[in-house]
Design a protein around this nucleic acid. Structure first.
Length: 307
DNA sequence: AACCGACTCAACCGCCTGCCT
DNA sequence: TAGGCAGGCGGTTGAGTCGGT
């Protein structure tokens, strides 16, 4: 026995929206708002659509100040960084990109951005296989998925020294390092920024309140509280998660988990050409130094911005 | 011009959560 | 406290489009 449908499927219209329907929905919401009830909205407007369909149409297409297509390198970077740290929580990622919808970002990631990363990685691997025939190939032991890593023990950099390994542009775990200096000061993404010795990450509860798809990542509160301090401003419906740098170990571990899973996903598609579900991906704990250096190798966007 | 496979993305589906009674 | 309902989410689908042959 399944759940009762939210509307009578035999009555409501499905499929693409007509310009007339768009105009009616837009006009009504601009004049009267949604009335905090999407289910009754189509009846009030007089259109034969499911309330959920109206909501989706408004949020993804009709509401003001939406941007479609034309993702910038900066947006690529932010999407990738957040995907690594929090997984496929598109609504949270979208909350960091003004004018973008979760659906847009999800589509963009699945159809373009992942391939973009993949092609760069593939290119680098071919280069590696040609240039570094003596490198050993290992499998990571952490995480649900086995991750192929080209790992050269001798090339492992010392801690606190950010460097790439010999894998051309492939960011791998061996190139992981911590640094004290923090960067990124971007007025466009005010809630996604860092400062000296601390990183923070604001979650908009309107967007994140239903972060219940726990298969994608660990739990936000427990994870952040274990690795840093948390402050909450409930009046603004925003939580301010600050992460102190004295927890390098945790940040390192969590970031690596996320990064490994991205690697796993890319390798999986590239080598096995299948799309099986990747399990736990990293954490909400951000380490901008790692992201700033390693992920940057995928993008043209300059991460170390000059003041 | 016709066909076909690849790609894109708007829209739907079903599940989970939180709120209300 | 339990049950029902609406909102919100991520995953998936499929119609339309594009490009190659």
């Amino acid at each position: 026995m399944g759940r009762a449908p939210c509307c009578d499927k035999s009555v409501v219209k499905k499929g693409p929206w007509s310009p007339e329907e768009d105009a009616m929905l837009k006009s009504y919401i601009e004049k009267h708002g949604t009335g905090n009830n999407w289910i009754s909205l189509p009846h009030r407007i007089g259109i034969k659509r499911c309330g959920k369909s109206c909501r989706l149409r408004w949020l993804n297409y009709l509401r003001p100040n939406l941007k479609h297509g034309g993702f910038t390198d900066k947006e690529d970077y932010i999407i990738c960084s957040l995907y690594i740290t929090i997984g496929s929580r598109w609504s949270i990622i979208a909350s960091q990109l003004p004018g973008r919808t979760d659906n847009d970002i999800k589509n963009y990631w699945n159809t373009r951005l992942k391939k973009k990363l993949l092609s760069k990685k593939e290119k680098a691997i071919h280069q590696q296989l040609r240039l570094e025939p003596k490198s050993t190939t290992k499998r990571s032991s952490s995480g649900q998925n086995q991750v192929l890593m080209f790992h050269d023990e001798n090339a492992k950099p010392p801690l606190n020294q950010t460097s790439h390994n010999q894998m051309a542009d492939i960011p791998s775990i061996t190139s992981f390092a911590m640094e004290e200096k923090i960067m990124v000061k971007d007025p466009m993404f005010e809630s996604f920024s860092w400062e000296q010795n601390k990183a923070w990450f604001d979650i908009d509860h309107d967007a994140a309140s239903s972060s219940h798809h726990h298969h994608a990542s660990p739990h936000l509160n427990s994870m952040t509280s274990s690795s840093g301090s948390i402050g909450t401003n409930s009046s603004l419906q925003m939580s301010h998660y600050s992460i102190n740098n004295n927890d390098h170990g945790d940040q390192e571990m969590f970031f690596m988990a996320g990064f490994e899973n991205l690697q796993a996903e890319l390798f999986d598609e590239m080598i096995n050409n299948n799309t099986k579900e990747i399990g736990m991906r990293g954490t909400e704990t951000l380490n901008v130094n790692c992201l700033g250096h390693d992920i940057n190798s995928f993008f043209d966007y300059p991460l170390q911005e000059n003041e």
